[in-house]
């Protein structure tokens, strides 16, 4: 999980165009200024491409913070490796 965080932070920095943006497992949409519905689409797409995963319908709605997102990415990558 820990090796995913720096890469995810890079995605966030690009999407929000803020090279200093720092995220933590507890970060939620309300902590980052400019995280609206358009940015969210952009973010989801960028994450799918960065980690070569595809979110299934309904998975994204269940996420509460960045930590859960990282866990989901990790789980998908593990499944892909099996």
């Amino acid at each position: 999980m820990n090796d995913l965080m720096p890469r995810l932070q890079g995605v966030f920095q690009d999407v929000f165009d803020d090279p200093k943006l720092a995220i933590a497992p507890t970060t939620t949409a309300s902590d980052v200024s400019g995280w609206d519905s358009l940015t969210n689409i952009n973010l989801i797409f960028a994450i799918e491409r960065e980690f070569h995963v595809k979110f299934a319908l309904g998975e994204i709605q269940e996420l509460n913070n960045v930590g859960e997102m990282v866990a989901l990415i990790g789980k998908k990558q593990d499944r892909a490796r099996q």
């Binding site: 995605v11 690009d14 999407v15 929000f16 165009d17 952009n42 797409f45 960028a46 491409r49």
Partner: peptide, 13 residues
């Protein structure tokens, strides 16, 4: 496409 989508904010600026 991937790069344009991800870096659009910086590109626009």
């Amino acid at each position: 496409a991937e790069t344009v989508l991800r870096k659009r904010t910086a590109l626009r600026k």
